[in-house]
Write a protein that binds this DNA or RNA. Structure first.
Length: 159
DNA sequence: GCCAACGTTGGC
DNA sequence: GCCAACGTTGGC
């Protein structure tokens, strides 16, 4: 029996990998997460979970599109590759440290949802929303069904 | 187990 | 490019 669908937000630097890139390739292994909390969230993911695709470190940070979790967590092979910038010398194939999931493209948002605007709804989103929690730098974080609904309702609202 | 030093994230 | 906040490392 499948667990209830859950929701997540995943950050990427668009210069590195953007929602347009995801649209082009269709499905992408989410390589390079080297933070234990973010990894642990990916381990909780199930195929079919919803993903908010967030652009960080760019001119207008915000949510740009939607994706879907396309695999259960499995070892990130870049950790074993000495030539990769994500190489982790302490990881072995017998004892991998880093897992990832595949993310499948769903769609672009009708308009990007800038961080500024998301922050304007901080009260409704609640304090457990890690994206706008002070000092939080998590690159993979959970989103509640209510938060998901609220954020997507903004897509159709006037900026 | 403490904590200073260092590296990284990411908004601005 | 700056810098605040955070996570990790490693000496002790």
């Amino acid at each position: 029996m499948a667990a209830r669908k859950r929701y997540w937000l995943m950050k990427s630097e668009p210069g590195d990998f953007s929602i347009d890139d995801l649209a082009r390739v269709g499905t992408e292994p989410w390589t390079g997460v080297r933070n234990y909390q973010a990894r642990n969230y990916m381990r909780q993911m199930q195929v079919g979970d919803g993903v908010l695709f967030y652009h960080s470190n760019c001119e207008v940070p915000g949510i740009y599109g939607l994706g879907e979790v396309a695999s259960a967590a499995y070892p990130d092979k870049t950790q074993f590759d000495p030539k990769s910038k994500y190489h982790d010398e302490k990881a072995t194939r017998e004892q991998p440290r880093w897992d990832l999931v595949d993310v499948r493209y769903d769609r672009h948002l009708a308009r990007p949802l800038p961080l500024d605007e998301i922050r304007a709804h901080a009260d409704a989103l609640g304090e457990d929303f890690a994206l706008i929690r002070k000092g939080s730098r998590l690159s993979v974080l959970p989103v509640s069904a209510a938060q998901w609904k609220l954020l997507l309702s903004l897509e159709k609202a006037k900026p």
